[in-house]
């Protein structure tokens, strides 16, 4: 499989120009930043708080923007043009993910700066965040592909933002409702527990299981988004 950087870059350039003229979608990056400003000033943030904002950034910026830009391509019939071009599924999906990745990275860095998050082992944290981002890109792609319009996309992404952005709230209910114990394995919860371990000085030997769970989510996200994309190539 060969990838054409020219094609990927063309989609990136187009999305970059287009997104900044799309205030409805691009303004979503303000949500985690405003929360970071608010919480960063009023209290001394804990890991839970840092990761509430980081997970919110991943769910609202990464998943939502990816979902919205793909849903809009579908709604305006421009995705069909890309699908009928020589660009491969990988070139299109990578090209369409790059703007989301750039905005997500900027948002997370700004949020971490505003809340004063300075991880003990930055390399491990960055690895975990990159893998998490792949999962959120996958889920955003899937929801964007199954939405018919950008408005529909902004509705169906809401449970994702709630579950993964504020999912740590559900952890408090696990003791009372054991059936919710699956929540512990959600990628956002794994990321928080991973971050606690990192701050406690854990090495890779103690951290790999968290990375494995998040990676499993990411792999499932990529595979499903590829399957849904292939299905959407056909009008059946």
């Amino acid at each position: 499989m060969t990838l054409s950087w020219k094609r990927i870059n063309a989609i990136l350039q187009k999305d970059w120009k287009d997104l900044w003229k799309n205030y409805f979608v691009s303004s979503i990056i303000l949500l985690p930043i405003v929360m970071a400003v608010f919480y960063g000033r009023i209290m001394d943030p804990t890991i839970d708080l840092h990761y509430m904002i980081i997970n919110l950034a991943l769910a609202s910026v990464t998943a939502f923007i990816q979902c919205a830009v793909i849903a809009e391509e579908k709604e305006k019939h421009t995705l069909r043009g890309l699908m009928l071009s020589p660009a491969s599924v990988f070139e299109i999906l990578i090209g369409k993910s790059l703007v989301t990745i750039i905005l997500s990275v900027i948002t997370i860095i700004v949020c971490a700066y505003l809340t004063g998050y300075n991880p003990t082992n930055i390399i491990m944290v960055v690895i975990a965040l990159i893998i998490s981002m792949v999962f959120y890109l996958g889920i955003g792609t899937i929801l964007g592909l199954i939405s018919r319009t950008i408005i529909e996309a902004s509705f169906i992404i809401m449970p994702v933002i709630f579950l993964f952005g504020f999912g740590s709230v559900l952890m408090g209910l696990v003791e009372k409702y054991p059936s919710l114990s699956f929540v512990e394995y959600l990628p956002n919860i794994q990321l928080i527990e991973f971050a606690y371990k990192v701050e406690a000085g854990a090495g890779f030997g103690d951290l790999w299981s968290y990375l494995a769970v998040i990676t499993a989510w990411a792999v499932v996200g990529i595979i499903l988004s590829g399957i849904v994309y292939k299905k959407r190539q056909l009008d059946d």
Partner: peptide, 14 residues
């Protein structure tokens, strides 16, 4: 939201 030129540039590269 893009110009005619920007639309066609994309397809030139694709």
């Amino acid at each position: 939201r893009l110009s005619i030129e920007d639309n066609l540039k994309l397809y030139c590269d694709l």
